[in-house]
Amino acid sequence: MNDLLLMCTIAGRRAAIPAVAVQSVIEVENITPIPGTPDFICGLTALRSQALTVIDSSLALGIDQPCVSRDQRAAVVEVEGHLYAIMVDEAHDVGEARSEPVAVPGGFGDGWQRAAKGMVETDGGPALLVDIPQLVSGPIAAAA
């Protein structure tokens, strides 16, 4: 198993997003907020005249703290024809998975349990593999 993973930090934890699904990593500049939407949706941003829905990965996991990001890095992914920018604390390198995602006895904690496919071993140590569709649908939908 040597899938490429985008290594990043979400809510202070090491996480990995399958690199195949990531179109690009951008620095989100302007976000147009959308009133009335759940917290984890930060708003819309434009990328090459396409509108991306900006997701705060931390809030989307159901963690109370929003993303703390210096450079507003986000991974652009497409789910069911819609483009999303998943904001993370930090986006690192692309690395190789050294193992299949596995469950850990006792789980990963509330939010993580819902939106993580499991733990993968990488060169820099274990990371949680993010389930993108779960993440973009937010904590409420994921709980249902």
Partner: peptide
Amino acid sequence: KPIAPAIMETRLYAGTTL
């Protein structure tokens, strides 16, 4: 242009435009 389902759920918006 269409918007993401999570935004659609608010039932406030019908789409987005640039």
